[in-house]
Design a binder for these strands. Structure first.
Lengths: 247, 247
DNA sequence: TAGCAAAGTGTAATTGTGACACCAAGGATA
DNA sequence: TATCCTTGGTGTCACAATTACACTTTGCTA
């Protein structure tokens, strides 16, 4: 910490959340559709909000998540700060801000987070911005408002690197699942195919899933065994300093 | 982005830099000694500064680095934002801020960076805070001002994880070095011993160092060959998508 | 010239990875 | 009720990577 200098600013601080979900369609992200202009994709934005006085950054992100999805205490990790002085200055973005902010020209630095939600628990909320929330397959997103596409790319990168060392994927699945769901999830996140037998071998060796000795019913093919995540074994691995899940 | 709400703040934004250096004593970090009170360690702080209007976050961190070390264009990576509302409120810290800031009670959110500098190129500068900069072995740091110890721990964690996938260590070494320097560097960063033969095999296989066919002189033991980092081979590896340096 | 200190080198056992193909089970349908 | 369709579930082999481990070389110093 040094002495004061001239020209320092007091920007606004926001938090923007990249909320990932997963289903048979693959990896999705929850976006807010902004109303005006055409329905071009670049009008979508990440959900976010300005942070409050005396509010911790993580708490602000949890609050956004809660307002939007109704979920609390879910996986959430900071991506980093995005604060380019011109990050809000695309013409469409400026116009939109003018309609919505008291001081639309103020600089805003955002602290970005990503989180993993189980879409089965997700229930859209009635809060002001949750109305226009939509799940969009990550692979179909090519542009977003502000610098949000850049933030999404950073989130994906961090998630990919995280899932190689920690079994965070379970946050995206229901409590009971089938190994092929987990398999598809890993393929969706990593964006490449994984050999079925090798995948299963790895998962089994880790001992982080546990069969419930129940089978699927009503499926037009051989029913799969149903599994749950074994949190105790996972905790043991982490305590032993294990951090390589090797994908 | 949602609608405005009450209670939003306009905090100050600072950047704090964890500047790592390396020599025979191991991994070091550059700290600022705050003047008052006793010479207890918790008076040391990370170098940092408030950011300017219209200044990009990365640029602010580069500026701090330049003012402090005289170096520009060196390895620098964001760690993340630290913004707990009470991060400045330890009594000693408050007293110090009162002596130095116009509005010492203002909330300050910091964007932390870490960087790797070659101590041979480092020359202390005459800037206001560079006067009291000191290199301290990372292993001896146990407390710091504000939340800076937490930031240091995050920096170390990120560096350890980074060095497993990218050969960033070369930023800490002189342009010409000896394999045992590189070996000691990796051991210092990872905090555990690495087998000499296995280490050399890995480095050689990667092809990212290149012998200059010169030997050390004046050492009281068998002289070592002198190496340099092979940037072309490294670039090739990165372009091929290689990101596992396997330590 | 003896001794010291660090440099430099190879192998064997184990473990991990990647590629690959067939049978099983249940529902759907003819 | 037999056939077909779809997905579940399984083992092996070749190769690569990792770990553990000890002795000789070189140059300076005493």
């Amino acid at each position: 910490m040094s002495l004061n200098k001239n020209h320092q600013i007091n920007p606004k601080i926001s938090t923007d959340c990249v909320i990932f979900g997963f289903d048979n369609e693959g990896l999705q992200v929850l976006l807010i559709e902004r109303k005006p202009v055409s329905d071009r994709e670049e009008n979508n934005a990440l959900p976010g909000d300005l942070i409050y006085d005396d509010e911790d950054l993580d708490d602000a992100a949890q609050r956004v998540l809660k307002e939007l999805t109704g979920l609390s205490d879910i996986f959430l990790e900071q991506i980093g700060a995005f604060g380019s002085p011109d990050r809000l200055s695309k013409p469409e973005d400026k116009k939109w801000l003018e309609s919505v902010r008291q001081y639309p020209d103020e600089r805003v630095i955002t602290i970005a987070y990503y989180s993993l939600v189980n879409k089965n628990l997700y229930k859209p909320q009635a809060s002001s911005f949750a109305q226009s929330a939509v799940w969009v397959p990550v692979s179909e997103v090519t542009t977003l408002a502000f610098d949000h596409f850049e933030i999404l790319k950073a989130a994906l990168k961090q998630l990919r690197s995280k899932i190689k060392t920690q079994p965070v994927g379970f946050n995206l699945l229901p409590a009971q699942f089938v190994l092929s769901d987990l398999h598809k999830l890993y393929e969706s996140i990593l964006g490449r195919p994984l050999d079925k037998r090798n995948f299963r071998r790895k998962i089994n060796k880790l001992g982080i899933v546990e069969s419930l000795n129940k089978k699927q019913t009503g499926v037009p093919h051989k029913p799969s065994l149903i599994y749950k995540f074994n949190e105790e074994n996972y905790q043991r691995l982490v305590e032993e300093g294990y951090d390589n899940f090797g994908f």
